[in-house]
Amino acid sequence: MIIQFTFEPKPKMQKQLIETFTQHEFLFAKGTAPRPDTEIWVTYGEDVTKETVAALPQLKWISVASAGIEKMPLVYLSDRQIHVTNARGIHKTPMAESIVGHILSLYRSLPAIYQLNEKKEWDKPKGSRELRGETALILGPGAIGAEVARLLTAFGVHIIACNRSGNSVEEAEQTIRLDELTNYLGEANIVLSLLPSTNETRHLLTNEHFEIMKEDVIFMNFGRGDVVAEKHLVAALESSPKRHAVLDVFEVEPLPPTSKLWQLENAIISPHISSHSAFYVERAMEIFSENLSKWESGDTKLRNLVDLKAGY
């Protein structure tokens, strides 16, 4: 069986795969199209197009070493009955640490302290707050959201989880349905979106939602940028300087220099790096190896199997 990688894991990882799964031929070629006889394609996902897949008549499974698959031709892949898995869950540690780090930074006035350091000024910033007793509302509480909830709970934060079903999230004190969101937004000091990009979530948050939020809310988007139209976000930040937005994802990436978000002092721009970690590829390869062992035994109930019709 031909297994094509269109990125190059470290040589040690390549060697381990080749020695563990001896019956397969592994090809590692960054930046090139898969060979026509490829049956399993391992990729970050950006190079998966309808045209590329159409040139692979024997393709049966695409293993995506990232979580996002929204740009892939999902309908075509479903019609071809190609299995797609992703690396959902491997980001929870670095992303949760990034998210909590940003929250603590704002609550304890760290950006202002850093600015005073640069100016060599001995002064005391105003506005520092405590997390204890605050409320965080997490939209899309999957593995990442659960880890954020666990960490924030240790600081005494009340956690409200919001998902489509309303099924209880263990790490949250309260779970609500997505259609109940407007009833609870006004209670939250921190609103964190970890939602994927689907037809249901695209531009889900509107002016109405931001009008309900507290004047000093911290809005964080670490899921997908199109959950909110940029113009609505800009308007919400301009209307209340006490508000903050911490953004790791955007409608258009890279964020254009002309975007108003760059000009707002209460917007923190993170260039889609919250998931970066030295262990990223290692964790993705652990999922791939587990699934390849299943695949060899004829088990197609793979870990992180994507519902191509739902889009996640």
Rank of each mutant, 00 (worst) to 15 (best):
V281R: 02
F288T: 03
N291T: 04
E265S: 12
R283P: 15
I269G: 07
I268W: 07
S270V: 02
E282D: 15
Y280I: 12
E265H: 07
I268K: 08
Y280L: 10
I269A: 08
H276G: 06
I269M: 12
I268R: 09
F279C: 00
Y280H: 10
H276N: 08
H272Q: 01
S277V: 10
S275H: 12
Q263C: 01
I268Q: 02
A284E: 07
P271E: 06
S293A: 15
L292E: 11
I269E: 03
I269S: 02
I287M: 09
Q263D: 11
E290T: 03
F279P: 06
S274G: 05
E282N: 09
F288V: 15
E282A: 15
H272Y: 00
N266Y: 02
R283H: 10
E282C: 01
Q263V: 00
S293V: 11
N266E: 05
A284C: 15
H272S: 00
N291Q: 07
R283S: 10
I269L: 09
A278C: 06
S270E: 06
S289G: 09
S270N: 13
I287N: 03
I287A: 10
A278L: 11
E290R: 13
S277T: 12
H276E: 08
S293W: 05
E286M: 07
E265L: 04
S289W: 00
E290L: 07
E265F: 01
E265N: 11
Q263N: 10
S275E: 09
R283A: 14
I287E: 00
I269R: 05
E286D: 15
L264K: 01
M285N: 12
H276V: 06
S289T: 04
L264E: 09
S274K: 02
A284P: 13
I273T: 14
E290H: 14
M285R: 06
N291E: 04
S289K: 08
S293Q: 15
S293D: 11
S277P: 14
S275F: 14
S289A: 15
S293K: 15
F288Q: 00
P271S: 01
S277N: 12
A267F: 01
S289P: 08
H276S: 11
I269Y: 09
M285P: 06
I268C: 08
I269T: 06
L264A: 03
E265D: 13
I269K: 09
R283M: 10
E290G: 14
S289Q: 15
I269N: 04
A284N: 12
F279Q: 13
I273K: 08
S277E: 07
N291G: 09
S293L: 13
E286K: 04
Q263H: 03
I273H: 11
S289V: 01
N291S: 12
A267R: 07
I268F: 12
